[in-house]
Structures are given as structure tokens and as C-alpha cells.
Nucleic acid binder design. Structure first.
Length: 648
DNA sequence: TTAGGGTTAG
């Protein structure tokens, strides 16, 4: 005869599916089906055991044969349904419950609605709970807040919070997480400040939020302020560095974390591998790969995906493909990363092959193919793929549209560009900074200034990139003064700050128009007012500007003062100016340097030999000719005269 | 029995 005590004893010793089925049979045979408490013991065991392949189905069958199951039994089965990927079965199950729900039931149901993002059913659960008198239950309130936040109904989550009883740490963390998820920095900061205690969970949330919004210093401050860090806090901070381009800092912090004896888990490994990928230091990456293996994380899907991405960015598609092929079960990340890897390596054909056999192509897969084609000079193919994507009913997002527009820009196809703009209007996409910038860029490159400015004028939010697109675009189209006017307007706007690209635009505008004084003004302005260190392009512009205007010595001084080694175009521009303005002294120095720097560039040989010729240094001319691959007729002004006067 | 935080692809 099986009793509850005996049943418990059996279950405690149960170690195989066969044994469990025997207990089950005995349970039915002994009539314990009528004992709700005994049934709940067995159901609890079946929902939490790993002995059965389908624990949920087993517990559900049990529930159906038990005579009068209690609320506890039902709760356990509901919980099992949610945890085993069947949350949609929870509400039907609840509707068929014979037992009266208890204070835990609606909590589980709310959680199930949260996983399904089922707001309407979630509200019904809320009503039912109130009707049953559990409206002020703390656990239920926490679950409801979490449900509303998962469904994007922040206002409702806040209402529950404001109406709430006394809150515990979970409540505070839940409402904080709601604002973090919505990326509402102001509200999150407000909640964080009001929290009675700021534990590791809250800190992780805040660090991750700041990280996503590019507020690295704020994240660091919060991170440094917490005494009891855990793996989550460390991961959040490492991820913050990683996603904001501070890869070396991410690796250094990871090293600190390990120095303090923290174990390495899957998530932190993924972040660190991603940092290695972006840092593009092969040795670091291989060390991380080794570490992941030693930590027993080598076969974790997410780690493998991060490694596929890493080896792709090291241009080692073979290693990436080996990982891809060795994966037991691949997900979207694996496929999309591998396809992106081929495209980054210029293997459009391999990418296409993989893309064709990929089972479920999502919008990232399509966008990867589109932007990959654009990057590999196959813009027209990119448009074809975009059409196929629409035919498949996949909705393009902002990144997709930007890629397609850049395909139009590359092809200088105003017609296609316009129809993309039309598509954006028709489907009522918000013209964000990134989308607006790509439209302005497209219109500018197609010479359609009016449309470019129209997009700019109608934009609600004007960040730095769209100002840059206008300033650079106007300069490119020869509207130099208008471009400089826009720069002044940008300076007085509150939503944008000039950056490196802005000054590339204004300096090249000055260069096109030969505005030496203005150019020098901007070159100083960028350094003194905006603390921007000029890059090689800025220097190149200034050298060319000064040289063309005849300030050859000043140009030479500037090129000599550059903190980086000047590139061939900069030296070449100066040499051209020397020749044009007949400054043979500087010209000879520069010419010699260039001929050494780029021995295969016949144009430089020609120019230098012209300079020697005009000085009557014929031996030098002969020596130079001897080192040239072939003699080109010089393409510079006056050169034919020099050519014909050579005494051969 | 119930609730909260970190992760990778375009």
C-alpha cells in the first residue's frame, strides 16, 4: 500500500525514467489519485525532474487523471508550461482549472503573458487577480510590472508601482529595468536615485543603459561606486567599453576581473571576444579562444558565434567556417555572422551560397547581404536583393534602408534614390539622423541640392552627421560660401557640435575656392576651440591649399610639422604646386623625397626631372630617366616645352 | 511554488 510518506521516500531515491514510471503506476493503482496532496507531491517531482524527456507533458497527463487537483498542483503545471517554451498553454489551462486559484497562480500567468508579450491577456490576468482579492500581493505586483514593461506599456507598469504597497528590492529593480529597457535615461536615473539600496542588479542595469547610450563616464562612475560587484556588474562594464569603441579598456577590465578571482562565464566571454574582434589584434583573439576552451565554454553557441565573428574580422574565414561547421545547433547569429564574414572578405559568391540555403532569413540576414554587396561594389545586385526581400514580406528597418540608399548613392542613381525616399514616406518611417544623413548624402552626390536641403529642413532632430552631410555636400557641389554659411549655422545650433568630418568639409571647401585665410582660420579653430587633433586629410587639405596659392614654403613647413608621416598625395600636391609656381628649391627637395617614397610613380619622376631640366641640371635628368619604368609625356602645364628642349 | 540585472550578427 502506497502512502504519502512512502511516495516521498520513493521519489527521493528515484534516479531513472523507468523507476519514475513504476512509481507513477503504483500511485494510480493505490488510489492516491483521490489524494490532492499526494498528487501534488508527484506533480512537483515530475515538473522539476530531468529524468523525463517531456516533463511538462507528463505532469499535464498526471493533472488530468488526478481527481481533484489542488491549486498547488495546477500552479506547478502552469510553471512547467511556461518554463518549457509553452507559455501559450497557460491561459487555457487556467480556464480549465477546477481548483480555485491561489495567490501564486496569477503571478505565474502574468509571467507567461510577459514572455509572450501578450498584453491583452495580461490585462485580463490583472483583472482576474484583483477580482480574486490578490490585487495587493507583492509578488503579483512585481510580475505585473514586469509583464507591462515587457509589452512596452511603461505607463501601466508605473501605475502598478505608484499604487503599490511596500516595495522590496525586486520591485525597485523591476521598475528600474522597465525604464532601462525603454532606454529612458532620465526616468532610470530618477528611480536609481530614489532606490533605498542600490545592489548589483540595479548597478548592472544602469551601467548597461549608460553603455547603450554612449555615456561611458557615467557608467564608470556607477560601476566604481558599487561595493559588492558580481559577474553581471563586471560584464555590464566590459560590454559598455566594448560597444563604445574602448576595446583595450574592455580587455584591461576583464583582466582586472580575473585578477580578483571571478570565474569566466558565457556572457563575459562573448563580450571579450567581441572586443578582440574589433581590436583586430590576432594574438589577443587567439588567447581568448584558448581561454574560452579552458573555461569549458568552447562549445557554447553564443561563444562560438562571437568567435565566428572574430575570425571573420581577422579575415580568417577558414577558421570561422570551421567553427560554423562544428556547431551542433546554429542560430540566426551563427548564420548571419558567417555570411557577414564572407562578405567582409570579399567572397560575395560564398556569402550568396550560404544565404540561399539559410533556413529562416530575418531582416538582419537580408540587410547583411545588401550592405555586403554595396561594400563589394555590387550596388545594383544590392537593389535586386532588396526587391527580393520585399517580395518575401520581410520588413526593412532603418539599417536596411540606409544600405539601400547608399547603393543608390554609389550608382549616382537619382531615380532609384528618389524612389527609396518615396518608399520611406509611404511607409511612414521616421527620418532619424542616420536615415536623413544618408538621404542628404545621396541627393548631394547626385547633384540634387534642393532635395538634399529639403530633407535637412524637414528633419526634426538634426545631429552632427546630417550637418556634416550638408556642409561636405555643398562644398563638393562647388557651393563653397553656402557650405561655410552652414558651418556658422551649425556652430550656433544646440543639437550638433563640429567634429573631424565637419572640418574635412570646410577645409576642402576652402581648398576648392582657394580661400587661404579662411582655411587657416578653420585649421586653428578646430584645434583651439574644438580640441580636435587634425588628421592626415586635414593636413593634406591645408598643404594643397597653401601650395596652390603660392605659399610653397609655408606648405613645406606644415608638411614637415605633421605629427604623422605625410602620405604620397600630400607630398604630390606640394610638388605640383612647386612646379606650378616655379619654386625649384623646394620642388627639388620634395621631388627627391617623393621619388624615394614611391619609386614606381612615373609622374613624380617626370615632375622632378622637369624641375631639374629648368635648372639645367641635365645629369640629374638622365639619372632619373634611367630609373623610370617608361617615359610618359608629362601632363603638367608647360611640360611639353621642357620635353622638347631636352638635349638628347 | 512566486519576481529583478550582464551577452553576439547587418
Amino acid at each position: 500500500m502506497l502512502t504519502v510518506t512512502l511516495l516521498d521516500a520513493h521519489l527521493a531515491r528515484c534516479s531513472s525514467a523507468r523507476h519514475l514510471l513504476q512509481i507513477h503506476a503504483q500511485f494510480v493503482a493505490s488510489g492516491l489519485l483521490a489524494d490532492a496532496f499526494a498528487a501534488s507531491r508527484l506533480i512537483l517531482f515530475t515538473t522539476s525532474t530531468r529524468l523525463l524527456p517531456l516533463p511538462f507533458h507528463h505532469s499535464l497527463r498526471l493533472l488530468h487523471v488526478v481527481h481533484r487537483p489542488n491549486a498547488f498542483s495546477c500552479n506547478m503545471v502552469l510553471k512547467a508550461a511556461r518554463e518549457h517554451g509553452l507559455p501559450h498553454l497557460c491561459l487555457p489551462l487556467y480556464a480549465s482549472m477546477s481548483a480555485a486559484p491561489d495567490c501564486y497562480t496569477h503571478t505565474i500567468l502574468a509571467a507567461a503573458c510577459a514572455t509572450r508579450r501578450a498584453i491583452e491577456e495580461g490585462r485580463q490576468v490583472h483583472c482576474h487577480a484583483v477580482r480574486h482579492g490578490f490585487g495587493r500581493n507583492l509578488y503579483l505586483a512585481n510580475a505585473l510590472m514586469s509583464m507591462y514593461s515587457a509589452c512596452g506599456c511603461l505607463g501601466d507598469a508605473r501605475k502598478v508601482f505608484d499604487a503599490g504597497p511596500v516595495w522590496d528590492a525586486v520591485s525597485w529593480n523591476t521598475i528600474l529595468a522597465a525604464y532601462v529597457q525603454a532606454e529612458d535615461v532620465d526616468q532610470a536615473v530618477g528611480v536609481f536615485a530614489r532606490m533605498p539600496e542600490r545592489g548589483a542588479a540595479a548597478v548592472s542595469s544602469m551601467v548597461s543603459l549608460f553603455g547603450r547610450r554612449g555615456m561611458v563616464d557615467e557608467a564608470r562612475k556607477v560601476f566604481d561606486g558599487v561595493e559588492r560587484k558580481d559577474v553581471f556588474t563586471w560584464t555590464a562594464m566590459i560590454s559598455c567599453f566594448q560597444r563604445n569603441g574602448k576595446f583595450a579598456e574592455a580587455l584591461a577590465l576583464f583582466s582586472d576581473m580575473r585578477g580578483e578571482g571571478w570565474p569566466v562565464d558565457e556572457a563575459v566571454m562573448v563580450c571579450v571576444v567581441a572586443a578582440c574582434a574589433r581590436l583586430e589584434v590576432t594574438r589577443n583573439g587567439e588567447m581568448c579562444h584558448g581561454l574560452a576552451f579552458r573555461a569549458g565554454l568552447g562549445s557554447r553557441l553564443n561563444v562560438q558565434n562571437a568567435l565566428i565573428h572574430m575570425y571573420s574580422s581577422f579575415l580568417n574565414v577558414v577558421a570561422a567556417r570551421r567553427l560554423f561547421d562544428s556547431g551542433q545547433c546554429l542560430d540566426q547569429f551563427s548564420w548571419n555572422s558567417m555570411i557577414a564574414g564572407y562578405l567582409k572578405n570579399g567572397s560575395v559568391k560564398d556569402a550568396k551560397e550560404l544565404f540561399t540555403v539559410m533556413p529562416d532569413k530575418d531582416n538582419v540576414s537580408w540587410t547583411t547581404m545588401i550592405s555586403g554587396c554595396v561594400q563589394n561594389d555590387q550596388s545594383s545586385e544590392a537593389l535586386t536583393i532588396f526587391n527580393n526581400m520585399q517580395a518575401q514580406g520581410i520588413k526593412p528597418d532603418e539599417v536596411t534602408l540606409v544600405s539601400v540608399i547608399s547603393a543608390c548613392t554609389n550608382m549616382s542613381s537619382l531615380e532609384q534614390g528618389k524612389s527609396m525616399h518615396e518608399y520611406i514616406r509611404e511607409h511612414q518611417y521616421t527620418i532619424t539622423v542616420i536615415l536623413g544623413t544618408s538621404l542628404i548624402d545621396m541627393y548631394m552626390k547626385c547633384g540634387c541640392l534642393e532635395s538634399a536641403l529639403e530633407v535637412f529642413d524637414t528633419m526634426e532632430e538634426r545631429g552632427t552627421p546630417c550637418w556634416n552631410a550638408v556642409i561636405v555636400g555643398l562644398a563638393m557641389n562647388g557651393l563653397v560660401m553656402k557650405s561655410l554659411d552652414m558651418f556658422s549655422e551649425m556652430e550656433s545650433s544646440s543639437t550638433a557640435t563640429p567634429n573631424e568630418i565637419t572640418f574635412t568639409g570646410v577645409l576642402s571647401a576652402c581648398r576648392h575656392a582657394g580661400l587661404v585665410e579662411e582655411g587657416q582660420h578653420f585649421f586653428k579653430l578646430m584645434q583651439h576651440k574644438y580640441h580636435i587633433i587634425p588628421n592626415i586629410r586635414h593636413y593634406g587639405c591645408m598643404v594643397d591649399l597653401l601650395g596652390r596659392a603660392g605659399y610653397v614654403k609655408e606648405a613645406e613647413n606644415l608638411i614637415e610639422s605633421m605629427p604623422m608621416s605625410p602620405d604620397v598625395p600630400a607630398w604630390g600636391a606640394l610638388l605640383g604646386s612647386c612646379w606650378k609656381h616655379g619654386d625649384n628649391e623646394v620642388g627639388e627637395r620634395v621631388g627627391r623625397k617623393l621619388v624615394n617614397l614611391d619609386p614606381h610613380h612615373d609622374g613624380f619622376h617626370t615632375m622632378l626631372s622637369n624641375i631639374y631640366a629648368s635648372e639645367g641640371m641635365w645629369q640629374h635628368v638622365k639619372d632619373l630617366r634611367g630609373s623610370m619604368k617608361q617615359w610618359h609625356v608629362p601632363k603638367i602645364p608647360g611640360s611639353s616645352v621642357v620635353e622638347s628642349s631636352l638635349p638628347l
